[in-house]
Each structure stands twice: as structure tokens, then as C-alpha cells.
Design a protein around this nucleic acid. Structure first.
Lengths: 235, 235
DNA sequence: TGAATAGTGTCTATAAGACAATATCCC
DNA sequence: GGGATATTGTCTTATAGACACTATTCA
């Protein structure tokens, strides 16, 4: 039954992608797809694919994002590889998780509302970098059960993101090219799950050397417009 | 040719282990095994095994350490999974790297001097958490060429260790049960590749809550004996 | 002019680095 | 006592949080 399949794919290696985005209201969101086959048929799961024989792991992750979320040019980083023997009834499956970061504006409406995909909000029942499973809430406010250990994997992505946010440019991947410092602060607050001090956040970001002034300002605000910054090249 | 093999193992998944230890002189060391088969036959490589069908990834890593290094009860953490299509001539291989930490005293002499294994010193041609390949130096002082991308993987282990050293109890895995604060400082200096301020290192460690006084002291020192500490339980 | 947020200046608390002084062991 | 390192105390410096004040836009 698997003859043709085994020629084109590694029969026991899959890639799953945790796509994270921050909504305008500050909620963390991720993309899920409905499983069409056993095991866990009907449940929602992270978008995933079997790894092709002539394809790197990262290429497989990009293919999953393209085919199941219509996304290209996305930040990707490898997360963790799971391989408990009893994880999947189809036989022994080793699955490499990636996490992806994308500005909320880049997600096409049709993927958020299609029959077999949805964007869910994530709530995190732990603080700091403790880690553990998270809860997924559908757009209608219902709790969404996840297949496999995918709730734990999403938690791992957030844990990793929290750990690296302060000394890497990861936060910028969730913003458009130009942004205000307060936009960036809201991204950081969404990821860290707590309010940040405005003054020292500004100082820290400006001192980090990651951003540069675009010499432009917001327009059409009902208040003093903020300076727009962009990620500094070559860092 | 692979019939029996494929029944017992996943034909395209291996686990490789970076075993790190700190020598008394402050050098980082790792265990290598000589490759008996193509590709890269004759070169030294990280100890690795194919993953068994009824075995978790971590169990496979423990088996590699036991069979190729005589080690049990070792700290293990998953590092990174490599899977470039052209990485291995045998066909498509996905390989999960783990890093292990062990006190230098636990490594049996026979594994350091056997014909097909050796302990090498590592030199790191980058600072901070930049990452990249490292160089391996044999006990006789000769440079050792590594198979595959294993030099890069060892670099990844050190990068990870540097990143987590300051807020996790990883350093203690390289020390015996009881140790002085200066012992711990030497471990940190070896991993970070730079000298640390003694005063603030003490303060930081004592304030971290990771250690507790054993009420014992060094004996037979030619100077004032230092208090022995141990890792505090339940942290 | 008033509402609303941007941006600046200053004070305080905390943690790290520097350095000096004292303590304790073995010979 | 002398050599050697441990341990403590104090001062200085860098950074984050708190808070007050000024600036700038649109309605």
C-alpha cells in the first residue's frame, strides 16, 4: 500500500509547523488544519507534511506553510523533534516541529475561514519560561482539542520565543517593515504575556542597535504621531 | 540487503550524541568514535546509532552513550535535527543530535584510549553565542578531522550550553556531588571561554538558590579550605 | 483648545565589576 | 610565621522601573 509513497517520501519522518502571529488586540494566534485521516481524524492539528526524499526539513516546512496556509517568505526556525514509539498509530513516526513567525496582515482571509483550516487564539496557562501545553480557542470562542501532542508543541514554540525575544530580532518578524516602538512593545507584551515598562523598553530597544529611524511618522492619528522605525540592515 | 535491518530500525533516522566534559585544566572535551563504514570511513565522528522501532529518540541516545562510551545516568538534552538530502551517501538520513554532560571523573580511562574511540579537546574559533564549527585536537595535539557536519553540531551544543548556563542548573552536571564555588566558576569559564569576575560570580550563584552549603570543607589543601556546596534538591 | 499618545528628564533600586581587608588552613 | 586561597565588605558603574513633565498631532 505504501509502495509509491515510500519512493517519494521518508515513510517515518514528518514536519509540523507552529505558525505564530499577534492579532491587533494582542492575542497570540496560530494556524490549524483539520485531520482528514486516522489517527485523530476530525481533530485539528498543526499543518504538517511527510518529508520528501529530495527535500530538506526546512523545505518541507515551507511546503507545509505554502500548501496549507498560502504563505511564502516566512521566518522559520527549527523547534524540537518528537519520536515516542507510541505517538502515532500508523507506525513509528518521528516528527520535526518548526515555528514560523508572520505579521498578522500577511495571513489571507480565506485560510482563516476555510472549512479545513482555521486561525485560533492561544491562551497560555503558565508564566515565564516554564513551558507546557496551551489552550486553543476558536474564533467563535469555543475550546479546540488538538491532535497528538500539538498543544505541547505550541507551548514549546512560545517558550522558545520568550527566551530569545530579548536578545534576537525575532519580534520584528511579526511586524510590517515600518513600525512604531509602541507597536513593537505590544508584540513583546503579547509574546511575554505581561505588561512592559514603556520607558525602559524604549531605551533598551534603541540601545540594542536593532532599529533605525525611517525619518517618517504616523499619519492620521488622533494624537501626536509616533516616529516609524525599521529593522536595521546587516544585523 | 536492508530487509532485516528495516524491521528493527527506522532506516532513515539516526541519533548522534555530543558528550561534553571539562578537563581539570579547563579544556572542553568530547568523545568521538572512528567510522568503520562508508561514508567518511576512517574519520572520527560523534557516537551515533540508528533509532530502533520500539525505542524513543532519547533511549537511542542513551544506548549510543552506553555502547560507545560505557556511560549511564548522564544528563541529556535534544539539540538539533539535520536532514539535508545530500548529507549521507547511504541515502536520505535524518539525524537527531543530543548533547550530554558528564563530570570528567566519570569517563572511564579505557574509552579515552581505545582503538576506535578517543576523547578530544575542543577549541572554539568564535566568541559569545555566535555559533559555528569548532576544531578537535587529539590527546597528542594533532588536529582531528570530523565526519559529516559534526564539527558544526559540536559548535551548536556549545552555543546552546552558553545560552542556558546562566539561568539553568546545567553547569552542575559537569561536577561531582560536592564542589566549591571556585570549581563551579572554572566550569562556567571553560564553557563561556572567558574569565569571570570572582566576586559577582559568588554573589550570583549564592543568590540563585541553586546551591546549598554542605557544612563540609575541603581537606588537605595548602591554603584555607573552601566550603563544599551541593545542588539544592527540588529546583 | 482639549484629548490622546509620543517622547524626555530625573530619581531610585538592583546587580555586576573593582578592590581592599580579613580569615583560615597547611607547612 | 609565611604562603596561599577563601570569604566579607565597600565603593563605583550600568541598567531597569517609576514617575513627572513637555511635545505634537487631529478634531
Amino acid at each position: 500500500m505504501r509502495g509509491k509513497f515510500a519512493e517519494e517520501y521518508l515513510p517515518d519522518v514528518t514536519v509540523d509547523v507552529v505558525l505564530l502571529s499577534v492579532a491587533p488586540d494582542g492575542a497570540l494566534q496560530t494556524l490549524l488544519t483539520r485531520r482528514m485521516n486516522e489517527p485523530h481524524k476530525g481533530l485539528f492539528a498543526l499543518p504538517g507534511v511527510f518529508v520528501g526524499r529530495r527535500e530538506s526539513l526546512q523545505e518541507a516546512a515551507r511546503r507545509a506553510l505554502r500548501d496549507k496556509g498560502g504563505l511564502t517568505d516566512v521566518f522559520l526556525e527549527q523547534l524540537f523533534t518528537s519520536g515516542e514509539p507510541d505517538r502515532d498509530l500508523r507506525g513509528r513516526i518521528v516528527s520535526v516541529a518548526y515555528f514560523a513567525l508572520v505579521p498578522i496582515a500577511n495571513i489571507e482571509e480565506r485560510f482563516a475561514t476555510a472549512a479545513d483550516t482555521q486561525i485560533v487564539r492561544i491562551t497560555i496557562p503558565w508564566t515565564g519560561e516554564k513551558g507546557g501545553p496551551v489552550r486553543a480557542i476558536s474564533a467563535r470562542g469555543a475550546s479546540v482539542d488538538l491532535a497528538f501532542d500539538h498543544s505541547e508543541i505550541i507551548g514549546g514554540a512560545i517558550k522558545r520565543l520568550r527566551g530569545k525575544l530579548n536578545y534576537t530580532p525575532l519580534g520584528f518578524e511579526l511586524l510590517p517593515k515600518n513600525f512604531t516602538l509602541y507597536d513593537l512593545q505590544r508584540i513583546h507584551e503579547a509574546i511575554l504575556g505581561r505588561a512592559l515598562n514603556k520607558d525602559s523598553f524604549r531605551r533598551r530597544i534603541l540601545a540594542s542597535g536593532f532599529v533605525e529611524d525611517t525619518k517618517k511618522k504616523q499619519t492620521h492619528t488622533a494624537h501626536r504621531p509616533a516616529v516609524l522605525y525599521r529593522l536595521k540592515k546587516g544585523r
